[in-house]
């Protein structure tokens, strides 16, 4: 089971050459454990249901809504963004490619949909735009 890769390491000024296998059994166990941890972290951290839908225009936060409350906003740039109490989505856009509308419904923290022609981004966040406090 030991990987058959050999690796030469030069140690010290004297240039003594020692020989060591790159992967020991233990190394593989550790790597597997780390991978499991990373996967666990990924699923618990990023699959979290978002609390707010943020609308960013030209790089600035324009407005944000609570995801659990239904909302509808018609923007001057011709896009309509809607929330149905569960998710938020571009319902309509005047842009030619409609990528934003086709992105569909967003509900998980970190998910986003962008309408590039209008520089409008709909983003789901954990809450309050992740601010520390509110003035």
């Amino acid at each position: 089971m030991t990987a058959k890769i050999k690796c030469y390491i030069i140690i010290g000024k004297g240039g003594i050459i020692t020989e060591r296998k790159l992967f020991h059994k233990k190394d593989i166990v550790v790597l597997a454990l780390l991978l499991c941890l990373a996967l666990l972290f990924y699923f618990t951290a990023t699959r979290e249901k978002g609390e707010r839908a943020e609308i960013w225009i030209n790089g600035d936060l324009y407005k944000s809504f609570e995801l659990k409350e239904p909302f509808e906003i018609k923007l001057d740039n011709g896009a309509t963004i809607k929330g149905d109490g569960e998710s938020a989505y571009f319902e309509h856009s005047d842009c030619p490619d409609k990528v934003c509308v086709n992105t569909g419904r967003l509900s998980v923290s970190g998910e986003w949909a962008a309408c590039l022609p209008n520089e409008t981004v709909l983003k789901i966040s954990k809450g309050n735009g992740d601010v520390d406090t509110v003035s």
Binding site: L61, F65, N128, G129, D132, V134, S135
Partner: peptide, 22 residues
């Protein structure tokens, strides 16, 4: 905070839970 500054929201006057700016 973490080198970038504390992130303070400006309250949305129309919505107690919302902010208009960070």
């Amino acid at each position: 905070k973490d080198g970038e500054g504390w992130n303070v929201g400006i309250q949305d006057p129309a919505n107690e839970a919302g902010i208009v700016e960070a």
